[in-house]
Design a protein around this nucleic acid. Structure first.
Lengths: 130, 130, 130, 130
DNA sequence: GTGGTCTAGACCACC
DNA sequence: GTGGTCTAGACCACA
C-alpha cells in the first residue's frame, strides 16, 4: 500500500498518514489482523522522520484502528472504531453548509455522500492488489 | 446571533468563527445583505483578540461568503461560495471511512448526511421571522 | 510548585511529571483554573527537553486533568478526571497482593490506604506555599 | 492456573506474568511449595518467547516469591515477599490522587481498597482443601 | 510568547 | 529487530 503525502499541505504529515491508513482499512486494502509496516520501514519509504510516523501510529492506536502487538509489529485492529455520530454530524453540518452555499442541491449532496461511502466498497471488491 | 467558541478545542478560534458564520448563513439566520457586527464589537462580545476576528473576516471575504460594504461595514455576500466538489468529496471520504469503521451502515450514513443538510433547509424555510 | 524528578528511575520522565502534577492537583497545591507553567518554562526549570514536557502535558490533557486554552497557556481543568473504578481496582489488587505476601495485615493495609488518601487533605489545609 | 496475557497492553509481558503469579500466590490458587510449570511448558502454553518467561521467573526469584528447586524445577517460596511500606505508600498515593480527582470519596476509596485485599482473604481462607 | 509540528540522531526495554 | 523514550534545535500557526 503506497502512501501519498503532500508536504506542502496545511494538514500535518502525521494526520495525513492517519487518514490514508484509515481509508486503506475502510476500503479493504488493509484487512483486520494484517501487519502494518514498522515505523522505521514506513519512515524510510515515505522519507519522513521516525517520530512523525510514530505519532501517527500512536494516534491510530488511541482511536482504536490499530493495535500494537508487544511481540513485535503493529496490526490492524479487529474491533470497531470509536467515532461518535454526534461528532460526525457536526463535521458533516459544516460541509453541508459549504455545499449548500456553493449551490449544490440536496440531491447532489446526497449523491456525493453516497459516492464517498460506496467508493470504498467498489475498490474493496476488485482484488487487484490485495 | 450568538457565537459559541470552545477555547479548549483543537480547531483554531478564527476557524471556529468562520464555521459559525457559514453555518449561520447556510441555515438562514444570516441573510444576504445583512450587516455583520464590527470586528471590535465581536471581539468584545466573544472576549477574543481583535486580530483573531480580523483574520476570520479576512478568510470569509476571501472565500466569498462576506463582502466589505463601501461604508465601512461588512455584509453577507449574495454571491455563491466557492467550494469545489472535489475538495468536498475528499473530506467526505475521510468521514465516510471513519463512519464505516465505526459500524455505521450505508443507510445510516446517508441518513446522517441528509440530516446535516436538511437541518438547514428546515431552518431556512422559517426565515419569515428575521 | 517544585518538581522532583528522578532521572535514573525506570518510570519515564514524562510520566513522573504527570504524576507530580496529578498529586499537586489532588492535594490542593494546584487549584482548578490555575495557570500551569508554560512547557518552555518547565523545561528550563527542570532541565528537561521541551518535547518531554509537551508529551506530559498532552497526556494530562487527554486524561482530562488539564486544558489547553488557545488564548495562551494551559490551565488546571475544573472537570473531573476519568479513571474508572475497574482500572483502579485492578491496580489495587496487585498492590494488595504484594502487601499481603509481605506480611502486611488487612488492618495495616487499610491504614496505608487511608494515609495515602488523607495525606493530601492534610497538605491542602496547610497553606504555606499556596 | 491459566494465564491471561494482553499483548496489546502497555505493561510488558514478563511483568504481566509476574503479576498473575503473584496474584495467584496471594489469593491461594498457588500454595507454598507448589511446583510451577517449566519455562518451556509455560512458553508453549502462552505462545510467548522462552526468554520472556525466563525473565519473569528470574524477577520473581529475585523478589523472593519463588525459589529454584534443587531437582531443576521451580516452586512457590514459603518465605515472605519484600515490598517496603514506603514504596507501597508512594504507589497508593498516586492511585488515591487519581481516585480523588475522579470524584471517588474517601469512603468509596477505602471500600475499593478493602475489596482489593479481601477478595484474596476470602479465597485465602479456604486453603484447607489443599 | 504560546503550543504544534518536524527533524536527525541516539539509547534503551522488550521480545 | 520492534517500539518507547529522550535530546537539541528549528520553523510555523495562533493569539
Amino acid at each position: 500500500m503506497l502512501m501519498q503525502l503532500d508536504f506542502a499541505s496545511a494538514t500535518p504529515i502525521y494526520r495525513q498518514i492517519c487518514d490514508q491508513l484509515i481509508l486503506g482499512i475502510a476500503d479493504g486494502r488493509l484487512c483486520a489482523g494484517e501487519k502494518l509496516p514498522t515505523i522505521r520501514a514506513l519512515a524510510v519509504e515515505t522519507g519522513v522522520n521516525v517520530m512523525t510516523i510514530n505519532k501517527a501510529y500512536q494516534l491510530l492506536k488511541q482511536e482504536g484502528y490499530i493495535t500494537a502487538d508487544r511481540r513485535g509489529g503493529t496490526v490492524v485492529s479487529s474491533s470497531k472504531g470509536s467515532v461518535s455520530s454526534e461528532k460526525l454530524l457536526g463535521e458533516l453540518r459544516l460541509r453541508a453548509a459549504a455545499a449548500k452555499l456553493a449551490g449544490i442541491s440536496g440531491d447532489n449532496w446526497l449523491e456525493l455522500c453516497g459516492l464517498a461511502y460506496d467508493g470504498m466498497i467498489a475498490k474493496g471488491s476488485k482484488d487487484d492488489d490485495v
